[in-house]
Computed example of a mutant assay.
Amino acid sequence: MDSFTAIDFETATGYRNSICQVGLVQIKNGIVIQEVDFLVQPPDNYYWNRFTDIHGIAAKDTLNSPTFDQIWQHIAPYIENQNVVAHNGFGFDFPVLDKTLLHYGLTIPNYNKFCTYKIYRSNLATLCEEHDIPLNHHDALSDARACGELWLKWLKI
């Protein structure tokens, strides 16, 4: 696989349609060629305190941010018909994307899904420490970068 996008989402609540940050890292031939980082206003700009405690993003941070349907056109090319990797993707990121797209009446794209958690069977922070990968955990872009590095290590690129 010579090209893939590593993704990560942070959510404002336990509802899977409440994306508040998107991180995408596009990698070709083992080299990062593009990074995308968006703060996103979740539905009604509503947050659960315990989620803000985890990632540090609060309603005041996304008050003037675009909603997911307003940024989808910018991130869709990194996902549609692409190889997409996420850490715990099948348990979190892929369902979050689907539920958010459905919430806004957008079509769920076709893409190839891969999960580094299924390979390594450990949490992201522990893996980053073991593999000496920099991580600002629960920052979507940092988590996506780390996931991309883990995938490259697995591919042995």
Rank of each mutant, 00 (worst) to 15 (best):
M1F: 14
D2S: 08
S3T: 15
A6Y: 06
I7P: 05
D8N: 09
F9A: 11
F9Y: 15
E10M: 07
A12H: 12
N17T: 00
S18W: 11
S18Y: 09
Q21A: 14
V22I: 15
G23I: 01
G23F: 02
V25N: 10
V25R: 09
V25E: 11
K28F: 12
N29A: 13
I31R: 10
V32K: 12
Q34T: 02
E35N: 08
E35S: 13
V36K: 14
D37S: 14
F38L: 05
L39T: 03
V40L: 03
V40Y: 02
Q41V: 03
P42N: 04
N45C: 15
N45A: 15
W48F: 07
W48A: 03
R50P: 00
R50F: 06
F51S: 08
F51P: 05
T52F: 09
T52M: 10
I54N: 02
I54P: 04
H55M: 11
A58H: 14
A59Y: 09
S65M: 12
S65F: 06
S65Y: 07
F68L: 10
D69E: 13
W72S: 04
P77K: 04
Y78T: 02
I79M: 11
E80S: 13
N81S: 11
N81F: 07
N83S: 10
N88A: 00
G89T: 10
G89Y: 10
F90C: 03
F92Q: 03
F94E: 08
P95H: 04
P95R: 03
V96L: 13
V96M: 12
D98V: 02
H103K: 06
Y104K: 08
K113H: 07
K113A: 08
F114D: 06
K118L: 12
R121M: 12
L124H: 00
L124D: 01
A125S: 07
A125P: 01
T126E: 00
C128P: 04
C128Y: 00
C128W: 00
E130F: 05
H131M: 12
I133K: 05
A140N: 13
D143I: 00
D143G: 00
D143N: 01
A144G: 01
A146H: 01
A146M: 03
C147W: 02
E149H: 08
W151S: 01
L152C: 08
I157M: 14
